[in-house]
C-alpha cells in the first residue's frame, strides 16, 4: 500500500519534471522519427536481399526494431538523471524520508515507460502512414515486453549510476555497453549476417530476446516460440534487476 502510494508520488513528480523540460521532450519525440526518416531508406535494398528473405513493407521489419532500440535507449540513459539528482542532493532528500525504497526507484521508471509509450505511439502512427501494417493485439503484447525491458535497463542504469556516483565513470560504462548490446541484438543489422560465435554470443544479450520477439509480435503472431522465450527471459531478468537496484539504493551512500 505504502509502496504503491509512494510510487505514484514519484511517478507524478518525474512525469511533471519531464514535461517541464522542453529539450528532453523535443529529443524524445524527434529521435524515433529520425530513425524512421534516416534509417529505413538505407535498408530498403537490404530488406529484400537473401539475409532477410522478407517481402512486404520494409517498415514491418524495422519498426519493431526501432521500438526495441527506443526501449534500450531510454532505459540505459535513466542513470544520467540519477547522477544529476545525487549531485543536487535530491536523492538524499528522498532517502531521509520513510518513503519506500522500491518506490524511489520504480516511480521514475514507470514514468519513463509511460513517456516511452507516448513516443512509441507517435512512431507507430507515423509508420502506419508510410505503410507499416498495424496489428493492435501483437503491439499490445509487445508493449509488455518493451516495458519489462525498459524497466530492466533503467534499473540497471540507475544502480550503476548510484555505484559510480559521477558522470564520467557512468558515461564510460554506458558507452562501453552500448555497442556490443546493439550489435549483438541484431537491431540495426540482422545477427544472421554474422558468424556462428556471434549468434551464440547474442543469446547473452537481453536486447536480442526483445528484438526477435518483437518481429513476430508486430506482425500479429502472438504464439511464436520467440515470443514465449522473450517473456521467459525478460520478465525474470526485470524482477532480478529491480531487486538488485533496490538493494543498491538501500546500501549505497549517495
Amino acid at each position: 500500500m505504502r509502496t504503491m502510494k509512494d510510487t505514484s508520488l514519484f511517478f507524478v513528480r518525474h512525469s511533471l519534471q519531464m514535461m517541464r523540460n522542453p529539450v528532453w521532450m523535443a529529443v524524445g519525440l524527434s529521435t524515433p522519427l529520425l530513425y524512421l526518416a534516416l534509417f529505413t531508406p538505407l535498408l530498403k535494398q537490404l530488406a529484400n536481399g537473401p539475409s532477410f528473405g522478407f517481402g512486404g513493407n520494409v517498415l514491418d521489419l524495422f519498426l519493431p526494431g526501432i521500438l526495441a532500440l527506443l526501449a534500450f535507449g531510454s532505459g540505459i540513459s535513466a542513470g544520467f538523471s540519477t547522477i544529476f539528482e545525487m549531485q543536487q542532493g535530491i536523492t538524499e532528500r528522498f532517502r531521509v524520508t520513510p518513503a519506500s525504497r522500491l518506490a524511489i526507484l520504480l516511480g521514475p521508471i514507470l514514468s519513463g515507460i509511460a513517456w516511452m509509450f507516448l513516443f512509441d505511439a507517435v512512431l507507430v502512427i507515423v509508420g502506419a502512414l508510410f505503410g507499416f501494417h498495424v496489428h493492435i493485439l501483437g503491439l499490445l503484447v509487445l508493449a509488455v515486453l518493451l516495458a519489462a525491458f525498459m524497466a530492466t535497463m533503467a534499473a540497471f542504469s540507475t544502480a550503476v549510476a548510484l555505484l559510480t556516483k559521477e558522470i564520467s565513470a557512468f558515461a564510460a560504462v554506458v558507452n562501453g555497453i552500448n555497442l556490443p548490446v546493439l550489435l549483438l541484438a541484431g537491431v540495426l543489422l540482422p545477427i544472421s549476417l554474422g558468424p556462428g560465435w556471434m549468434k551464440v554470443l547474442a543469446h547473452f544479450d537481453p536486447l536480442y530476446y526483445l528484438v526477435v520477439a518483437s518481429r513476430p509480435l508486430a506482425a500479429g503472431t502472438i504464439s511464436g516460440s520467440n515470443v514465449w522465450i522473450g517473456f521467459a527471459v525478460l520478465l525474470p531478468l526485470c524482477a532480478i534487476t529491480l531487486g538488485w537496484a533496490t538493494t543498491v539504493l538501500r546500501r549505497v551512500v549517495a
Binding site: L9, Q17, G89, R93, A99
Partner: peptide
C-alpha cells in the same frame, strides 16, 4: 543537507507538498 536538493523545475509549494506526502 548542504545541497538542499529541491526540484528546480517545480515550484516551492509543489516541493513542499511532495515532501509532506512522502512523510
Amino acid at each position: 543537507s548542504q545541497l538542499g536538493g529541491s526540484d528546480e523545475l517545480a515550484t516551492g509549494r509543489e516541493n513542499m507538498i511532495l515532501q509532506g506526502r512522502l512523510y
